[in-house]
Simulated assay, not measured.
Amino acid sequence: MSSDDSHDTRDEEEFPAEGEAVGSEGGTREELRKTRERLEEEADKAVTEFDQSIVDLLAWLLDTETRARIYVYLRQHPDSTSDEVADGTGLYPSTVREALAELHEEGTVTRGKRENAGAGNNPYEYEAIAPSELVRGVVGDVQRELNTVFNLDDKLGGESDEDDLLGSDTAEGSAPAETEPVTITVQDADDDEE
């Protein structure tokens, strides 16, 4: 037996054929393969659920799930055309074009012409704004609505719990002072590191 033959035999011993027992634990390659597939399926499921949670949150900010899916796709694939977005999201091309036009008009996406070397069609390429910019756009509205709720008793002429505890600052018959108890500040993730 040559040294090459002994090497081949050792390889076969270290890597048994599919279905043979591996080690003393009695596990098999088939069991390892099935375990790996289960783990991959669970990881895919977790990513899908995470992606859906992001889309649900963005649908609240962007009004529809369609617009949210387009936004997520453009964050992952900047400089995409409407056809590329439609292919990547599985949405109808006409739906994508309409939503992109609205998102561009609102400032949620930017667009520029794709440069082609030859003559022909130069479609628009779209890119979504950063999430922090997206949030800044709605913060003012959310802050205003929260302050309206907090000041509801003042607007309706009732007493709030704070007035009961601290005593009212307004004199009998005078208009209540407008306060803004809610202030929302948005910072970029980079700002936190400084």
Rank of each mutant, 00 (worst) to 15 (best):
M1K: 06
M1F: 08
D4M: 10
D5T: 05
D5S: 05
R10K: 14
E13Y: 09
P16R: 04
E18F: 15
G19A: 06
E20T: 07
A21S: 12
V22F: 15
S24D: 14
T28F: 02
E31T: 09
E37I: 11
R38F: 07
R38I: 01
L39P: 04
E41P: 03
E42W: 10
E42H: 08
K45Q: 14
K45C: 07
V47R: 04
V47I: 10
Q52L: 05
V55A: 10
D56F: 02
L57D: 06
L58Q: 03
L61C: 06
T64A: 03
T66H: 07
I70M: 05
V72L: 10
V72F: 05
H77S: 14
D79W: 09
S80N: 01
T81E: 06
T81H: 07
S82V: 09
D83S: 14
V85C: 11
D87P: 02
L91R: 00
Y92W: 11
Y92R: 11
P93E: 07
P93K: 00
S94D: 13
S94E: 10
A101R: 05
H104S: 07
H104T: 08
T108A: 04
T108D: 10
V109N: 00
R111C: 06
K113L: 13
N116C: 07
G118R: 11
N122R: 04
P123V: 00
Y126M: 04
Y126A: 06
Y126T: 04
E127N: 12
A128G: 01
P131C: 08
E133Y: 00
E133W: 01
E133F: 00
V135R: 14
V135H: 08
V138K: 01
G140F: 08
D141I: 06
D141N: 09
V142H: 08
E145F: 09
E145T: 10
L146Y: 06
V149H: 13
V149F: 12
V149T: 13
N151W: 03
L152E: 15
L152H: 12
L152I: 09
D153F: 11
D153R: 00
K155E: 15
E159P: 02
D164T: 02
L165K: 00
L166P: 05
G167A: 08
S168V: 03
A171K: 05
S174T: 08
A175R: 07
T179Q: 13
E180F: 08
T183V: 14
T183W: 10
T185E: 13
Q187S: 14
E193N: 13
E193S: 12
